[in-house]
């Protein structure tokens, strides 16, 4: 299991680097999906199969599909890849790299001090996750529910079919709304 953990972590890091350096948006998204899948494998190795599967269903299976959907609608051609290539000049990496290095040094220091408990393979069953969600952390669940409700109302408002006011003035309002509202809702739902 420990080896599996390290392999999955390596894949996650490699895939994420590829996400940043791709110039073609859909290729970057594909690497992001791989990265999410490897994070799911990491969760599985750490004894959280429930979280691992939810990671795949929600992030890789729903949210990323919506991203790909938007990418397809944008219809980015070779010009955007060209533009992306210009934006990705090496000088842009310096700032983030320095800041991440600080975090890395901090992490290595903490592990060396033995402050972090590394790898405790106790498997957490779905039942225990549910019980703690609805007892200890019930406030968080309720708050998230309210947030989702706000999102749902907002999506409904945006996707609402406006009533016909006058003959000839409503051509633009009706075309876009049949598809957009369900898709927005899924994103908020999950």
């Amino acid at each position: 299991m420990v080896t599996a953990f390290y392999i999955a972590s390596a894949v996650a890091i490699a895939a994420t680097i590829m996400v940043i350096t791709r110039t073609q948006a859909v290729h970057a998204l594909l690497y992001l999906i791989v990265s999410l899948l490897s994070v799911a494998v990491i969760f599985f190795c750490l004894g959280a199969p429930f979280v691992a599967v939810l990671e795949i269903i929600i992030y890789a299976g729903a949210i990323m599909v919506l991203f790909v959907f938007v990418m397809m609608l944008l219809n980015l051609g070779p010009e955007s890849a060209q533009q992306e290539r210009q934006w990705l000049n090496p000088r842009m990496y310096i700032g983030p790299a320095v800041l991440s290095l600080v975090l890395l040094i901090e992490l290595v220091y903490m592990i060396n001090q033995g402050l972090a408990t590394v790898y405790s393979p106790t498997v957490v069953a779905p039942r225990e996750v549910g019980i703690s969600l609805f007892t200890t952390y019930v406030l968080g669940v309720e708050l998230a529910g309210m947030l989702l409700l706000a999102g749902l109302v907002g999506a409904f408002h945006l996707g609402r079919r406006r009533e016909r006011r006058e003959h000839g003035t409503d051509t633009t309002t009706q075309a876009a709304d049949t598809e957009s509202s369900p898709n927005v809702t899924v994103g908020e739902d999950s």
Partner: peptide, 14 residues
């Protein structure tokens, strides 16, 4: 799997 049903849902969404 103790998450077998969810595994099926995950695969179908992928």
């Amino acid at each position: 799997l103790n998450v077998g049903l969810l595994f099926f849902l995950a695969m179908s969404s992928l």
